[in-house]
Design a protein around this nucleic acid. Structure first.
Length: 113
DNA sequence: CGGTTGACCAAGT
DNA sequence: GACTTGGCCAACC
């Protein structure tokens, strides 16, 4: 398991923005990148991938920009794996998931900045 | 400093 | 709807 020992400023911004997403809303990798005035969507994902602030940062509220769940806990497997858990948590928070896809995604999307 | 990788994205086939 | 391609950018080796 890849544990982060030192985080960069870039990653810190990512974690900070994630923690600002309220329960019942979600944000996307793209939105986070956009909020930081960069196009490094992938770097955002990479940052969450090693998420050293596990409980502190609700990384399950970050999904792909097309409304699908993206990845979770090291995997990006679309069919029942860790993604299932991510979906469950989001459901618990009041969101509606339909076949791995957020229902009314754009309305539930928390707009940063 | 160059090349590879990645929880991405959009457009094309 | 599934798969491929090109592009983006930071972290890592």
């Amino acid at each position: 398991m890849k544990t982060k020992q030192r985080v960069t400023e870039f990653e810190r911004q990512v974690y900070d923005l994630c923690s600002k997403v309220p329960k019942g809303s979600v944000t996307s990798y793209k939105e986070i990148a956009h909020a930081m005035h960069t196009k490094a969507y992938r770097a955002v994902g990479a940052a969450l991938r090693s998420n050293p602030y596990a409980p502190k940062v609700p990384c399950h509220r970050v999904v792909a920009s097309n409304g699908t769940l993206g990845g979770f806990q090291g995997s990006i497997n679309p069919r029942g794996h860790s993604l299932r858990k991510k979906a469950s948590m989001l459901t618990e928070e009041g969101l509606e998931i339909n076949k791995g896809r957020i229902k009314e995604f754009e309305e539930r999307l928390f707009k940063l900045q």
